[in-house]
């Protein structure tokens, strides 16, 4: 049975560079030198799923979105 993985997209136009995602789930997210999130779309490995879900909830600008559910 295949367990579906969490997928997250990030909208670089919406991101305000608050870095909450990097602080919350460093393994999944990164900021470019401009401070804006560099991820566009990722599959989140199961071991980081909790942290990634918290990052989506913590993102103040609404730039991060789960697209698997």
């Amino acid at each position: 049975m295949k367990i579906s993985q969490m997928r997250i997209t990030a909208d670089r136009d919406v991101c305000i560079g608050a870095g909450m995602c990097v602080m919350t789930a460093e393994e999944v997210f990164d900021q470019g030198d401009d401070g804006i999130v560099v991820v566009i779309e990722v599959e989140v490995p199961p071991e980081h799923a909790d942290a990634a879900a918290r990052a989506v909830a913590a993102c103040p600008s609404g730039a991060l979105r789960r697209v698997d559910a």
Binding site: Q31, D34, G35, I36
Partner: peptide
């Protein structure tokens, strides 16, 4: 304005 400042406050 904010985009000019974010590079100064990244986690890194």
């Amino acid at each position: 304005l904010r985009r000019m400042l974010t590079p100064e406050f990244t986690v890194r």
